[in-house]
Design a protein around this nucleic acid. Sequence first.
DNA 1: TCATTTATGGATCGATTAGTATATAAGTAA
DNA 2: TTACTTATATACTAATCGATCCATAAATGA
Lengths: 197, 197
Amino acid sequence: MARTGRPRVFDKELAISKAMVLYWEQGFESTSLAQLKEAMGISSASFYAAFGSKENLFKEVIDRYNTSYGKVTDCLTDTSIKSKVAIEKALRQTAKMQTDSSHPTGCMLVLSANVCSEKNNHVRDLVFKERSLVRLNLEECIIRGQENGEITREVKADVLCTLIEAFMYGISTQARDGISYKSIDQAITQIMKTCDI
Amino acid sequence: MARTGRPRVFDKELAISKAMVLYWEQGFESTSLAQLKEAMGISSASFYAAFGSKENLFKEVIDRYNTSYGKVTDCLTDTSIKSKVAIEKALRQTAKMQTDSSHPTGCMLVLSANVCSEKNNHVRDLVFKERSLVRLNLEECIIRGQENGEITREVKADVLCTLIEAFMYGISTQARDGISYKSIDQAITQIMKTCDI
DNA sequence: TCATTTATGGATCGATTAGTATATAAGTAA
DNA sequence: TTACTTATATACTAATCGATCCATAAATGA
């Protein structure tokens, strides 16, 4: 059964894509509704009818990011490949994606709402929770690798996880600073060796 | 000769400290003048007479940061100690400082203006330039270490620099996410081994 | 004393912020 | 046709943004 009411004239999925670019580039708080509306090509009334609020749109953007660019770390949960392969793949795909100039550089989940005013701390929590999920996947991947003997047991999984995670997060700032993919990719080659030590 | 005019009633140095905490915690754009004035305990007139603008105060705050908390990486230019020792010291001091709960967590130069609206891109450049200086110091420290034979020559200094730098930047996000100093410190122990490989 | 200089208190500025109100348009359901 | 539902266009709101104006206070210098 088709839904009733006047049909929406703009493409909601496309509008979310446009919003994602803005939130990604400038962050949640620094992106104004005026910018969002202009990028989407819609009015205030249409905006609030479709998305409810600036914050709710951000939630939809996070979902969109997770199912598109954010998938570069999905391989961490792929138990059909070896743990070290999964971690290396996640890092290389992350570096490649974050330095790609066809969209804002860095990771949206690291950059867009990590720092904000007190009244938006609950928005910060949204991206914090997303990062926590990635960390969980990384740690479980490392534990699998230690159980399989692929990764050294000399170091606790939590510590190796912190090491890889810090490196991964740091790529966001480097990508923004213009560090080349090539340099980061070579650094990944080197850092992967710490899994063996 | 003492300068003329009505003397300032508030402590400018203390006011800069208060401002630093706000910029550090919330970022440049998300910190409002109302918050700054309240923290400093001064009026608009006093604010603009003393600091000129919100942006100019931020510049003074960056200077303050560099000569206080930011000194944790100063050891990178200390040629009286071995390169590896300097790098390790810089990392451990960074981790200790950034996870210290007596002030905002993470690095102000990484968090406070890395993402902003287009109209403030020149403010972003301010912290970018500060980071560039740290990177330069790190790279030169690595080159010294390679020349001395302390650090492997198998890997280009630029690549090792990217590796260490990414890890260092990532600590800012981890500190904000509540990752413990202990976990980061142990990760440093592990990552230092990549200098030898 | 009196000019000069700098800081302060307090009111205010135009611009921008996120979000709403109201009337109307455009579809479906009965 | 008529009721109902949803989206749109347009105008508008209160609050906040960074910054300024002006009268006055409080110091020094001559």
